[in-house]
Amino acid sequence: MKLKYLLQKSSAGKAAVNRYTRSKFGNFMLFFILTVAGLFSTLPLVYCICTSFKPLDELLIFPPRFFVQRPTIGNYMVLPDLMASLKVPFSRYLLNSLFTSIVTTLFYIIIASMAAYVLSKGRFRGRNTIFWAVQFALMFNATTLAVPQYVIFSKLRMIDTYWIYILPQFASTLGVFLAKQYIEGYIPDALLEAAKIDGANQFKVFWSVVMPIIKPAWLTLMLFSFRDLWSQAPTGMIFTEQLKALPQVISQITTGGTARAGSAMAVTVIMMIPPILVFLISQSNVVEAMSSAGIKE
């Protein structure tokens, strides 16, 4: 009973309530300024979409124009032909990408959240050391790590297998750091104690108390993780055609000079759809419903 009460308390505040009324005009101005700033930040996205609808002569026009004058879907229509020339059916690449991105993201969320939970609420020696290592590892530039990593991958026989897409992501420190900060900020120890008094074991506490509360954190994590995995193309790691993912194939489709610039942009636009979908899912009520069901349990 107590647990439920506390849960409701600490997961309150989904939407900001209007606590202090600002004038309607003030609200409108704020919205206006944010929209202008937001539109400015979406310019490249708009540019990509515009360019993907440009006919060839408009692509070559000088000076280049931002907006499309006579839109055509030609750039999209030639894609099936371009794909037909691939060695392996296009669906295979798509499947590889979807499979590795989705599965890895789901597992990573759980692995990172578990580690974050232990690092923030566990009481054992060395916990702080590990956390500092996580934080500092974030700051070591990846440029010089590529060679040692490659050696480790090949020692573990991960080269040219699916594992190369999946396992390295599990070592990512960003998610652990994000979730750990979130747990420390928003999950009071008393809540966990109450859950234990109610008879829940650690796994249960993690799954049905911690995970629902830190939902905003792992939804954010889902965005980043999926976005990165979806666009990853590990160079020199995959040689079997059947195992390649979309980004690697796309570079094959789009290396065709200016004549294919339009199609290249069309592919770029199509490639942005899944991350956008993930964004919409993360903001929608679907997940909202799922996780509040977890609380009621």
Partner: peptide, 10 residues
């Protein structure tokens, strides 16, 4: 799980 991969790959 995290610690294992973190150690190996980072």
């Amino acid at each position: 799980p995290f610690l294992l991969f973190f150690f190996l790959f980072t």
